[in-house]
Amino acid sequence: MSSRSLPATRLINVGQNGVGRYVCQLARITLRFCKHQASSRGMRDFVENYLVDFARSNPNVVVYVKPHRHRGASIQADYLNGNSHKTRVSKMDMDDICKWIELARTRSGVDIVRKTKNFQTHSPSIQGVWHPFLFKDPSVNLKTFPDSEYGRFEVNEVTATERILQLAERMKQLELEKGEGKSEKDGESV
């Protein structure tokens, strides 16, 4: 399956949750397990040790515990948007189950799909839209074109002509210096 055929979304915050007041999106959680089978051992441990604490610290989540005879253990998380996700947790130990339940509690409940970007902004620019006249000097409006100042061609490097002229000037200077030196020597001899 290529990434084109798979569904993709941008990063979604359901209903701007948390901008005003945060609402935990997990509505109810149903724990199913067997009272006898070894595969439900971890879930039984969780129910004995942590379930009351979980329910007490999250009064906004309704917890249903449902023993099923001779079935694998599972966690069913129902979210406020109507989605429900089932995780099979048979043969898992208590710590793993704690992690799965924590995941269910902190999720928004939207389907897990590929994200095109890991960030999103609602107002891309508060400075306004770009336009071709941004940061342009208004004095251009009053000029008549072609204008010598605005039509000037600027060259950053030194051109060949300028280079030769510079060399010629330097040679002249050198010759002058030499001539001066000679005259001084002549004076000494005289």
């Binding site: 935990c24 509505a27 109810r28 149903t30 009064p59 906004n60 309704v62 449902k66």
Partner: peptide, 17 residues
């Protein structure tokens, strides 16, 4: 099968604080 209206109402209040 799993539904307790009173518990859900209580959770609703707690959800909104």
């Amino acid at each position: 099968g799993c539904w307790n209206y009173d518990a859900e109402l209580f959770a609703f209040g707690k959800r909104l604080g």
